[in-house]
Design a protein around this nucleic acid. Structure first.
Length: 413
DNA sequence: TCTGGGGTCCTAGGACCC
DNA sequence: TCTGGGGTCCTAGGACCC
């Protein structure tokens, strides 16, 4: 058994792109974003600045921090270009996000040399052709390759010899494992478990009691490097959603109605563009104190119409607010659609009225809605998203993240 | 001026069916 | 008076990842 799985990960991607585009930023602590840090350069990370952190906190940690606006088109262009370099060596590529991918080179070593050599070549080419640092881990399993690339950072290559897998793995801290976040780390610490080796030597029963059957079994397997997952070149989306932070707004219909209309518009348009529709609608309401609740409804048949989605979301939000009368302000709204199924335009047109008839009498307007959605979709295809739409004016004033970033964050459906 | 936006997967309880 | 066992689906919440 040889190590043929690569995990390639562009280092501090957004921040590295900014330093590439503007040479005066090189060697300096840089954060992309403003209200919240979307990415931090290694110079900034040295001060403890991390992505997801409020900008204010980041500035406290690193007074010299330079905030820059994101250049989202460039991120997409350079991320795609890096993936294209990997594609040159194998068709077995599983892209995880804009800046990260697994690849299996087992079938092409006769052409390009051993996996370690392919990894080194990819790193060299991405640096030479794009000007970006990329770290690569090589191992026999996906989990170990991913850990290896984390260990390799910044700008490094780590190859895990199959003979030395457990020696490499067992000294590392548990939080490097896929699926161990802050909560699990704390729970494990309560049992005195800090390293992957200590986790591996813990009885399965104890882990299951601590973490539940699924997580317990999975972590135990990963700790012994038993990871059966293969490279999957194609993923089917299981849900599509959109959310919007509102600051602090009264929990009133005049606030949430236009916000939900806009979110429903975003989600439904994306579903229709991929010929998808979904049966379950979930809304999330976050209150002023950042506590959040969800409400969901599963229909008898899938929907993808903007107006139907907006109506259902509104009812769910109304119900959620009615259950929490003491909460007078909201800070975030989200809509998500799941139970997705491929759906042709014709099916949508025919199915819509019937679907809603069963559980939601009085909304039998599928045909008209479908026609309206089609018209809007077409106008946008020709003139762009902002040419026409619902409620975007009401939301625009306090939108904190550019739409270009939202598009970037969307996974391939 | 209290903290983004896109996802996946798991759990637990209850309804319901055979 | 007491009350099986297994399975599926739905809902709400939570942990985690990028």
């Amino acid at each position: 058994m040889t190590a043929t799985i690569l995990h390639a990960d562009l280092d501090a991607f957004y921040a590295s792109v900014e330093q590439l585009l503007d040479p005066t930023l090189r060697g300096k602590p840089v954060a992309v974003g403003g209200g919240v840090v979307l990415a931090a350069s290694y110079e900034a990370k040295a001060f403890g600045v991390a992505s997801g952190m409020p900008g204010r906190r980041a500035r406290e940690l690193c007074p010299a921090l330079i905030f820059v606006d994101g250049h989202f088109d460039d991120y997409k262009r350079l991320g795609d270009a890096a993936m294209k370099v990997i594609d040159d060596y194998t068709p077995l590529v599983e892209r995880l996000s804009i800046d990260e991918a697994f690849a299996d080179v087992r079938g092409c070593t006769h052409l390009f040399g051993p996996p370690a050599e392919i990894a080194a070549t990819i790193r060299r080419r991405v640096r030479a052709e794009l000007g970006l640092p990329i770290s690569v881990g090589v191992a026999r399993t996906k989990h170990l390759a991913k850990i290896a690339s984390q260990v390799a950072k910044p700008d490094g290559l780590v190859v895990v010899d199959p003979e030395r897998e457990l020696a490499f793995l067992h000294d590392l801290p548990v939080e490097l494992m896929w699926g161990v976040g802050p909560v699990t780390k704390m729970r494990l610490a309560a049992l005195g478990i800090a390293t992957i080796g200590e986790l591996a030597r813990t009885p399965g029963k104890s882990l299951e009691r601590l973490l539940g059957p699924a997580a317990g079994e999975k972590l135990a397997a990963l700790a012994w490097n038993r990871d059966p997952r293969e490279i999957r070149t194609h993923h089917r989306a299981r849900s599509a959603g959109a959310q919007s932070a509102l600051g602090r707004k009264p929990a009133h219909e005049r606030i949430y109605r236009p916000a939900l209309a806009h979110l429903a518009d975003c989600v439904a348009t994306r579903l229709r563009a991929k010929s998808l529709a979904g049966r379950t609608v979930t809304v999330r309401v976050r209150f002023a104190d950042l506590r959040a609740v969800t409400r969901s409804l599963t229909l008898d048949a899938p929907i993808a119409a903007t107006a139907s989605l907006a109506e259902i979301a509104e009812e769910l939000v109304r119900a959620a607010l009615a259950d929490h009368p003491a909460e007078t302000h909201i800070s975030l709204l989200a809509i998500s659609v799941s139970h997705l199924a491929k759906q042709s335009a014709l099916q949508l047109e025919l199915g819509l009225g019937l679907a809603n008839e069963a559980r939601r009498p009085g909304t039998r307007r599928g045909l008209a809605r479908h026609a309206a959605d089609c018209a809007i979709d077409k106008i946008r295809q020709r003139f762009g998203w902002s040419a026409i739409g619902y409620g975007s004016v009401a939301l625009g004033a306090h939108r904190s993240v550019p739409d270009a970033f939202r598009e970037l964050a969307e996974k391939e459906l």
